[in-house]
Structures are given as C-alpha cells and as structure tokens.
C-alpha cells in the first residue's frame, strides 16, 4: 500500500523544527521504522518534519569520558565509529544487528529510540549502558535517563513537542566486556528477543558489575535486574551464568505472536542472556 497524503517540511534548525510539531506531525529521521508503518497506514501523520538538514543532530564526539552521539547518527555510522569501538563497543555490536545493510545506512539511533518498537535493538544497549538522552522542547532542553525513557508499547518519555537531540554514554571502565545476542524475526529481522550485556570483572575474576538490557520479550525494553543481582560476585562460568539467566524474564509479561509464542520467548530470554553474559565476560578477560 502507499501512505495517506501528507505534507513535508525540511527545517534547518531545531527551533524551526519545534514550531512544526504538534497536530500529530511526526519527525522524519531515517524513516525506516516510520515509513513502513505509513505504507501499511498504521500511522497517518498529517505532516512529516524532516530533521535531516539540522547539522547539530549529526556526529559522534567525545567530551571527557562521555561520548555524545547525535540523534541522527545512523546505525552504520555507529557500527563503524572508532571511538565507540574503543570506548563503548556494545553500541557497535548492537547496531551491527539492526535490520540489514540498507536499513543501517538510513536508520538512526534517535529514530529507533523515539519509535520504541518492542523489537528494536538499540533500546537494550542504551539501557545496559545507563545512557542519558537529551530532549529539546519549546521550554528548553532536559535530560532523561535511559531507565525512565521506555514507558510502554511504542511509548517513551518524550513529549509530543520535543525532539530527541543526543544520546550520552560513558566510556566503559577497565576489565569490562560487552555483547549483544539476538534472535531475529525471520521476516522483519526485528528482535524476537535481544539481550545486551555489560560485565565488569573484579580483580579476582568474579562479576563486579553486570548490566543486562533486554528487548523483544515484552512491550518495552527493560533491565533484567534479577539476573544482575544473581550474577554479582559469581564466577562467570556456564553453570553460574545459566542459573542467573533463569531470572531473565522474571516479573515480565511476555509477548506472543505468529513468530514466537510467549513460552518460546521466555525460553529465548534465558538462552540469549546466558550467551550474552558468557561472551561479555570472556571479552572482559581479554
């Protein structure tokens, strides 16, 4: 199908873009989540506000031990970024799994996070990294912690009159390894379940810090805090990690659809959590 009729604006500044929001208008970044929905007429915004001509939204830069990623950075740019590969490799590892080459070349981190598809990959990573997101609205800018950002099915803490402008992540401490494990939907390639893990080892080789972000299992991405607590102080070996991974779906209502039942998703959450943690721990050691 083709989309319902819409107007198109291409502002060249954030303030110009803000004036165009409201009335159900949607921001267009890479369009690779939004446009398919519009073609299915699951979204019919009266106008698209293309933010592709606003230079402040691009780029990946360092500010001390924080890496600042512009909301319009593409998944491909993140995957290729040298500074992220060195300081926050989890983002490169996760971005590499998004969709396919064409999607990664156009889709953006800001769009993916603001859209908050339950099967999107990046929400898992930014939760595991405790990222902070910057939102700009008519009354100025504010920061939102990743943990507070995903509020429900395709819902975020962004107001309708705000634009997500940047994502800030801290460089990972020493003795930290990361991994993203994904079971993709065989048709859409979204995550049926995706698990992002950062594991920091103590000098005795046990888990000092664990952060597990999960997507695909339920309506919104979340931190698997049950797993994190179960891993603390443990040696990251198969038996201990498998036992901790059983906590992955605790307290979560699981989704079920034609691609994976609720039961199978819960099973996947255990298996992928175990694999992600073991991989991250092995990387932490090397």
């Amino acid at each position: 199908m083709f989309p319902a009729a819409f107007d198109y604006h291409a502002p060249t500044s954030i303030s110009e873009a803000l004036k165009l929001l409201g009335n159900g208008n949607k921001i267009l970044a890479g369009g690779h989540s939004l446009l398919p929905l519009m073609k299915l007429r699951l979204a019919e915004p009266p106008a698209l506000v293309d933010i592709g001509r606003i230079p402040e939204l691009d780029g990946i830069r360092e500010e001390g031990d924080t890496i600042v990623i512009g909301a319009r950075a593409t998944h491909a740019a993140i995957e290729r970024s040298d500074v992220l590969a060195q300081k926050v490799p989890l983002l490169c590892q996760t971005a590499a799994w998004v969709g396919d080459l064409q999607v990664r070349s156009r889709g953006t981190i800001g769009g993916s996070l603001a859209h908050a598809d339950p099967g999107g990959d990046l929400p898992a990573a930014i939760l595991a990294l405790d990222a902070t997101l910057t939102a700009v609205g008519p009354s100025g800018s504010r920061t939102i912690a990743a943990r507070d950002f995903f509020t429900g099915l395709m819902s975020t803490g962004l107001a309708d009159d705000e634009i997500l402008t940047e994502i800030r992540v801290k460089a990972l401490p020493p003795r930290t390894g990361t991994a993203y494990e994904k079971f993709p939907n065989p048709a859409s390639r979204y995550a049926i379940v995706g698990v992002a893990a950062t594991i920091t080892l103590g000098s005795d080789g046990t888990v000092a810090q664990a952060a597990i972000g999960m997507t695909g299992l339920s309506e919104r991405a979340f931190r698997a805090s049950g797993v994190e607590v179960a891993l603390a102080g443990k040696r990251p070996v198969e038996t201990e990690v498998a036992a901790a991974a059983e906590q992955a779906d605790q307290g979560q209502d699981a989704l079920g659809d034609i691609h994976a039942s609720e039961r199978y998703r819960r099973h996947l959450s255990h298996v992928l959590t175990k694999r992600a943690v073991l991989e991250a721990a092995s990387r932490a050691r090397s």
């Binding site: 398919p36 299915l40 396919d100 939907n185 065989p186 048709a187 859409s188 659809d257 034609i258 691609h259």
Partner: peptide, 16 residues
Amino acid sequence: LLSGSLMDYALPVAAD
C-alpha cells in the same frame, strides 16, 4: 490473514 506483509511472511534472502 496474520502474515499479510513481508514484515510477517518470511522469505529466504541470499544472506539466509
């Protein structure tokens, strides 16, 4: 029909 588009009807692509 629940598998009504290529977002839900899985077809092999070269990478598969």
